[in-house]
Write a protein that binds this DNA or RNA. Structure first.
Lengths: 213, 213
DNA sequence: GTCTATACAGGGATAGAC
DNA sequence: GTCTATCCCTGTATAGAC
């Protein structure tokens, strides 16, 4: 990431990363200006350049951090809804709904994801790989582990946890993400829920244990 | 769309739209310059402004045209693979593979779709709606109609053609689109085929007619 | 020694003028 | 078809302030 040393006060650095996340999310990489980020952070532009070598470095830095934070949040949702589940369908639907709201919220998180996807052709391959690994890939792996545990409890079939995680995401989340353009166009909460329910029903027909169906 | 009258020679206009599609697709809306578009079209910048009022008008115009052309291409693929199908699984897999290659090809088509998705927050609501209607929504409707016909022949269940079309697209296409970032990051042909096959298998377990399974 | 504030050089963009 | 007015952006430089 090549931040310019560890110089400067940490509180300023934190304000800059928060502001950069918001401005890049709102405007996208090209439209966002370093002036606007400095203003939103409440620091001078010189201070921004004291902490981050240039605009690209700042963008990639907050992108990576954001990806990891988002994966952490989703991991917590899995623990909350899938660890000690009694009603499997209910737990899966609740997880799907909260996940969609978390990722696509108009707040800081989802917006930056949009900016990254828009800019993906201009991101160095190794940074893109790190972003994927910290975010979507980690989430799929975590979800597969949970599904494997659920299979161990006889609630899902054992066959292929990775495939189950992939198809769960497709059926319960990807349609919402695509239709709302990753949160850029708001989607009614009721439609999110309806989509999650229909997705979970399809998922359970594919991967639910016959006994628990 | 507010093109500036019908002035100018049609051949020039065609060259401009073709060049704009390519440049916007390569660079994205913000990075693309009217100079580059004029150069790629082999006309003067004055000629570009003679046909299209400004940069935004040009972008939205080629976006709409592109959306409709892409939907036409997919419609042809449906006719080719699903109209007189004998081996249903084979037909669905071939359709899914060709569709993925068509949409995500590095050529003119898919690249502009990326630019539109990146810029969606800055597109007027009515134009975005028209773009959706001409493209993704039309494709889903066409696919649902084909699935209804296949149900009439006893190859799929009758239940809900719209839902079947939605889930077919999710299971056989959306994962490829997401992983390749709508064609920005190339994906091996073998992985496209493998993904399509696994998606079709899941789709048939959800919507295949029991007799034909 | 890090911050703020401001100004400035250099490049490139749109859109219009000649 | 070239040329230009006008604007905005990045990144640096130059002041002084806590």
């Amino acid at each position: 990431m090549a931040t310019t040393g560890g110089a400067g006060r940490p509180e300023k650095r934190k304000a800059i990363t928060r502001a950069a996340t918001a401005v890049f999310g709102r405007e996208g990489y090209v439209r966002a200006s370093m002036d606007a980020i400095a203003a939103e952070a409440g620091v001078s532009k010189r201070t921004v350049y004291n902490h981050f070598a240039d605009k690209e470095t700042l963008f990639l830095s907050v992108a990576l951090r954001n990806s990891a934070e988002l994966a952490d949040g989703i991991r917590e949702l899995m623990a909350k809804h899938l660890d000690k589940v009694v009603d499997l369908r209910r737990g899966l639907v609740d997880f799907a709904v909260e996940r969609a709201h978390t990722v696509l919220a108009a707040g800081d998180h989802g917006a930056l994801g949009r900016a990254i996807r828009a800019e993906v052709a201009n991101i160095p391959a190794d940074v893109l790989e790190a972003w994927l690994e910290a975010g979507p890939v980690a989430t799929r792996r975590d979800l597969a582990a949970h599904f494997e545990a659920l299979a161990g409890r006889g609630l899902l079939t054992e066959a292929d946890p990775e495939l189950a995680a992939e198809q769960f995401t497709l059926l319960t989340f990807q349609g919402i993400a695509e239709r709302s353009f990753w949160g850029a166009v708001p989607m009614a909460g009721a439609e999110v829920e309806r989509t999650a329910e229909r997705g979970v029903d399809a998922f359970l027909r594919l991967h639910g244990a016959p006994a628990a169906g």
